[in-house]
Amino acid sequence: MSTTTSSVSATSTACGSGVWQIPTTDAACAAVIRGNVTDVMDQCCDDASTHKYDNDCAIYCLAQGQDVGKLQTCITSKSGNFNDVFCNAGLNATATSTGTKSTSTGTSTSTSSTGTSTSTDNAAIVNQPISKSGLGLVALLFSSAFMAVLS
């Protein structure tokens, strides 16, 4: 009688909560990297460059030439991933800066323009974490005001 055993080793991942914080304040959408999402982002981002972040665990692009709602819909419908796609601005917002994708020769062109976001909707992501330093600052302000009242 022959027995076969197999073992599964746990793999450690460097992905953390930073995945949920898009590293730009301009109107953008991002996704956790799974399956075909990198190819989908290249298709849906049109002329905007895609950028990986948080140890290559997530990818984002600016909402250039389209609003956040259209970009988010494209990413979720083409990837089939509704849980790991998120944006940092209202659905009607568009990016205020512009740039072009880099070409295979390694050159890229990027331009900037000033503008304002046209967002009137609520943000597309609801649960944004509060930083510990932000909480500490708020607590310090309240305690200072409280001490000023007591003295």
Rank of each mutant, 00 (worst) to 15 (best):
M1T: 12
M1P: 15
T4A: 09
S6I: 15
V8Y: 15
V8S: 10
A10W: 03
T13F: 10
T13M: 11
A14F: 13
G16K: 06
G18W: 06
W20D: 05
W20P: 01
Q21S: 11
I22V: 04
P23W: 10
T24R: 00
T25W: 05
T25N: 05
D26M: 00
D26V: 00
C29I: 07
C29T: 12
C29Y: 08
A30P: 01
A31C: 03
V32W: 05
I33D: 09
G35S: 12
V37T: 15
V37I: 15
T38Y: 03
V40G: 04
V40S: 10
M41W: 02
D42S: 06
D42G: 02
Q43H: 03
C45Y: 00
A48G: 06
T50C: 04
T50K: 01
T50F: 01
K52N: 10
N55H: 15
D56L: 04
A58E: 05
I59T: 13
Y60C: 02
Q64I: 03
Q64W: 01
G65D: 00
D67K: 10
D67G: 05
D67M: 04
V68A: 02
G69E: 07
K70D: 05
L71H: 07
C74W: 03
K78C: 01
S79R: 02
N81V: 14
F82M: 07
D84F: 13
D84M: 12
V85P: 09
F86L: 09
C87Y: 03
G90V: 09
G90E: 07
G90H: 08
G90P: 03
N92C: 11
A93C: 13
A95R: 00
S97C: 01
K101W: 00
K101Q: 13
K101E: 12
K101M: 05
S102M: 03
T103H: 13
G106L: 13
T107C: 15
T109F: 06
S110H: 07
T111V: 13
S112A: 08
S113M: 08
G115H: 00
G115Y: 01
T116H: 01
T120C: 09
D121K: 10
N122G: 08
A124T: 11
I125K: 12
N127Y: 08
N127S: 13
Q128T: 14
I130N: 07
K132H: 03
G134T: 06
G136V: 02
L137S: 11
V138I: 09
L141A: 11
S143I: 15
F146P: 05
M147G: 09
M147S: 08
M147K: 06
A148L: 14
V149R: 15
